[in-house]
Design a protein around this nucleic acid. Sequence first.
DNA 1: CTGATCGGAGATCAATATGATCTCCGATAA
DNA 2: TTATCGGAGATCATATTGATCTCCGATCAG
Lengths: 161, 161
Amino acid sequence: MLKFSKKADYGLMALQYMASRQSQYGDLSAPRMVNTKEIAEEYNIPSELLAKVLQALAKSGVIESHNGPKGGYLLAHQAKTITIARVLEAIEGPLGITDCSHDNHDGTLCSQQEHCTIRTPLLKLQDSIYQLLNNMTLQDMMGGTPLITVQSLTTGQGVTR
Amino acid sequence: MLKFSKKADYGLMALQYMASRQSQYGDLSAPRMVNTKEIAEEYNIPSELLAKVLQALAKSGVIESHNGPKGGYLLAHQAKTITIARVLEAIEGPLGITDCSHDNHDGTLCSQQEHCTIRTPLLKLQDSIYQLLNNMTLQDMMGGTPLITVQSLTTGQGVTR
DNA sequence: CTGATCGGAGATCAATATGATCTCCGATAA
DNA sequence: TTATCGGAGATCATATTGATCTCCGATCAG
């Protein structure tokens, strides 16, 4: 629970690898094409699964794909502008702590919990987590840049009401 | 991914219910015993599964169990002192964003990723999330805390699922 | 221009973890 | 003392995730 999926892990690893490769040339002006196999071997992850992840990232515009011999992927933006939230959403779809996080797309709202007294505070929590993910970029994962501090969730512990 | 399990949901609901029941009497001095069936019916959740959750909470000391006729559960502490992190850990075990969050209990460290360049920044992220959970208490879940809108989650409309 | 090779994309299959259920055990009040 | 009520553990089913296989399109070499 509250755990990253393997796909998310793989995706982040791959992106970090790509970023490190490209940064050798300073910026995106001379991008270094990277293919699935290369990354898979570097990190010892199954290349087929990684392929799926990269495809999802490509589809959402985080990276660019190039077919043919000498083909491969490269970052579509600077590492600085790629947030973790963006990456995770590309790989996993909309993020959500609870099942009822997103508007009941098909009318099946929270099953029977009509008096779900839990939803509101959890959505708040979710929003805080999202902010964390949205404030952290690929760049932050590179060197070991410090970290974002957490703005308190409790918002004045009083509930005030 | 990054989603609460049903057990976590149920547990939080149950605790909130218990807290609201007990608060009718002002504090813990005159606790109101609550049994599994009562909560299950209130929220329309399967009582057997809820039972497991309550048992886990009891074992970890969040609530007290009392057997026999007229038995049931009651909060072991004030709502103000019960953190969400504590509850989740009681139900799910140690929290962790990544598989390698916790010390390789059985020597099986991050599979083969020896050059896992992802671990450190993710652990930081995990720590931030934990702080969120650890700063939020059952008390904070009680009132009708306002609400944050969810659409910040969807960011680019690309995801639609 | 043509074909062989390389990589991408989609569909399909298996494993794990979660959700749900069933049965037994212990405690207490009548 | 006993019947009843609730708790606890073990077991089974399902859904999500992880992994694999096969086909399609693109590009460069000949």
